[in-house]
Computed example of a mutant assay.
Amino acid sequence: MSEKPARHLSQAAEGVRAFNHTSLSVGDDWVYPGHAYDAVGNLSHMVGMLEQAVQQSTRPVMHTYEHGRVRIDGNGDADAKVAELVAAQRDAEAAAAALTAAVQRMHNAVSPMGLDTTGIPEFEDDEDDA
């Protein structure tokens, strides 16, 4: 039995929802710049794949349209609706590319960041060793 491609996008959305929930407040695993570096790196990887996902998400429509089998509710114009879809897809691809570039810049910006441990008791032993 093959998997339904749309299910993967549902799982990705669930993962983003879980991240949004667990990252609302600072905690032991979500407090230092390195934690943000990891998160932004994963986010960069994910959004880097959005443009292709946008392109491929319309394949079933385009396949059906190319075979003259798209029907629009209320006897609507299939050519007009497919043209609308293609235009919106192009806009989404451009937005995905822009988002990818912005998140990659975020990752580059957070990359050199670390924690200044000066005066933090838990790290004093480490400073004495240096």
Rank of each mutant, 00 (worst) to 15 (best):
M1P: 14
S2Y: 04
K4Q: 12
P5Q: 04
P5R: 02
A6L: 08
R7Q: 09
H8V: 05
H8L: 13
H8T: 04
Q11N: 12
Q11D: 12
A12K: 00
A13G: 11
A13P: 01
A13T: 09
A13D: 03
E14G: 13
E14S: 14
G15E: 01
R17G: 09
R17W: 14
R17Q: 11
A18G: 07
N20T: 15
N20S: 08
T22K: 13
T22V: 14
S23G: 08
L24K: 06
S25R: 10
S25M: 06
V26M: 13
G27H: 10
G27A: 06
D28R: 05
Y32M: 06
G34F: 04
H35L: 15
H35V: 06
Y37T: 06
A39E: 08
A39S: 10
V40M: 12
S44Q: 08
S44E: 13
H45K: 07
H45T: 12
H45F: 15
H45Y: 07
M46H: 02
M46I: 01
V47K: 03
V47R: 11
G48C: 07
G48R: 03
M49G: 15
L50H: 03
E51M: 13
Q52G: 09
Q55R: 05
Q55D: 03
Q56G: 08
S57P: 00
R59I: 13
V61S: 05
V61D: 06
V61Q: 03
H63P: 01
Y65P: 02
E66P: 04
E66Y: 04
E66I: 02
H67R: 08
H67V: 01
H67Y: 02
G68I: 11
V70P: 15
V70K: 04
V70H: 03
R71I: 11
I72R: 00
D73Y: 00
D73G: 01
N75W: 13
N75C: 10
D77F: 05
A78C: 10
A78S: 15
D79C: 04
A80E: 12
A80W: 03
A83K: 07
L85P: 07
L85K: 02
L85W: 00
L85G: 03
A87R: 11
Q89S: 02
Q89P: 00
R90D: 05
R90W: 01
D91Q: 08
D91V: 03
A92M: 00
A95V: 03
A96R: 03
A96S: 06
A97I: 12
A98C: 05
T100N: 15
A101Y: 00
A101P: 00
R105P: 01
M106K: 01
H107I: 01
N108L: 10
V110L: 11
V110A: 12
S111I: 04
P112G: 01
G114A: 05
G114D: 09
G114M: 14
L115T: 15
T117R: 10
T117P: 09
T118H: 13
G119M: 15
G119F: 05
I120Q: 09
P121C: 10
P121G: 11
P121L: 10
P121K: 10
F123A: 15
E124A: 06
D125Y: 05
D125A: 11
D125V: 07
D125T: 10
D125K: 13
D126P: 02
E127K: 07
E127T: 07
D128Y: 15
D128I: 12
A130R: 09
